[in-house]
Amino acid sequence: MLCFTLLAAGCSTKQVVVEGNFPKPLLDPLPITLGVIYPSAFAEHEFFDEAKGRAESDWLVKTGEAQVEFWDILFDGMFDEVVHIRDWETVQRRAAEIDGVLIPAIGDLQYTIPTHTNVKIYEIWMRYEFRLVDIAAIHQQEDGALSFNPDERLAAWPITAYGKTPTAFLQTDEEAVNLAAVVALRDAGAHFVTSFGGTPDVAIWLDGIARREQDAARSSNDQVGDPQPVVDSAETSTAEGEPDSGEAL
């Protein structure tokens, strides 16, 4: 019975559904309305590694749910407004306000555990591919799914992330891999935040948005400068709750 258990343990699949508590970033949000599309390969991302020998186990690491949870929190803290684009109706309804659409993808994920390396550290390495496109580049396919033309993208850049955790007393392999994945996700967020504005194509896009806003502010100031009909106090008081166009910008 014991031998059978040991043999079965050697052949089993170790499964990790990555879970963690992710903090909100401490940032002044950028004045941008960002559309976000999580492709299904991203939102349901999982990584499977087949055992190389009888002494090893297969590994299945499911990161999809944690990815969506983590990036949602990060984007919410980083941008003024985030619009999740799940269907064509959202594209049509919100197109006018969306400054750009971000589409993350996981290019690669690698992991090591002490039995692979003889080093007492569990590691996870990820490479993301971020693509930023204009809302006009999003199209609807015949089956209703959304797609975009890669040639119409505003920016595309990779983000690498690394997470490690040392072995610890009474900690299982699964717990350690989960911890390393959470550290890698946090590192991905830190890398994204610190490199976002410095990515050349993103910087051009941000400059364009800032210029558009300045132009809009200037034109609204010009309108304010035009002779206006005199309004009585009653009209003024009713408009007090609403921001005027100058303040809103």
């Binding site: 909100k24 970033p25 946090r186 830190a190 935040v193 610190t194």
Partner: peptide, 12 residues
């Protein structure tokens, strides 16, 4: 570290 995320991560 959580309150100051992402400014006290190993990278930052």
């Amino acid at each position: 570290i959580n309150q100051f995320y992402p400014w006290f991560e190993p990278r930052t």
